[in-house]
């Protein structure tokens, strides 16, 4: 099972974000840098959270920012932002967030292979701590098992 592409250009280590919107924007910017999404995709990811709440904080310390497939998605891709200072998303149990994943998906029907690969990584309960402590993009790619 293969992870969506995670080039080093889509990885930001130790970023500063004033709030959850800034953190999600960084994850969107990283997807734009790697060519997976248009810059506007960040707004779509923020809009999903404004509309539905902080459910994207799917595990303690980890947010999976994403929106629906649409014209802003240019290719399947993943981005990872680790935060110098954790930010709150307003989640009742899983705040504060230290690691933000950005996920761009072209095709909803085929995305389960990609999320199964994500589940493989994060079913190891140490993965979030390891990512938060990573000091280089290469180390992040290694933790994620990115090919």
């Amino acid at each position: 099972m293969s992870l969506p592409p995670l080039p080093e250009s889509a990885i930001v280590i130790g970023a500063e974000a004033a709030d959850w919107r800034a953190a999600v924007t960084l994850a969107g910017d990283a997807l734009a840098r790697s060519g997976a999404a248009a810059p506007e995709y960040a707004h779509e990811m923020i809009r999903m959270i404004e509309e539905h709440g902080p459910y994207v904080v799917i595990a303690p310390g980890l947010a999976l920012a994403h929106a629906r497939p649409g014209p802003e998605v240019l290719a399947d891709g993943l981005s990872i932002v680790t935060l110098q200072t954790p930010v709150n998303f307003g989640h009742p149990h899983n705040d504060p967030v230290r690691v933000v994943l950005g996920l761009a998906i072209m095709n909803a029907a085929e995305h389960l292979v990609a999320v199964a690969a994500l589940a493989n990584v994060f079913n190891d309960s140490h993965a979030i701590d390891e990512l938060a402590a990573a000091s280089s993009a290469a180390e992040v790619r290694q933790i994620m098992g990115a090919a």
Binding site: M48, L64, H66, V115
Partner: peptide, 30 residues
């Protein structure tokens, strides 16, 4: 989930793994 991709997909994948380990036969839809 809100989008029907991403988080609901992860729940589906992990629910299927758990159901298999519990030997429960079920269809899981995201």
């Amino acid at each position: 989930c809100g989008a029907g991709i991403g988080s609901s997909g992860i729940l589906k994948v992990n629910a299927e793994r758990v159901l298999r380990s519990l030997d429960i036969d079920a269809i899981v839809v995201a």
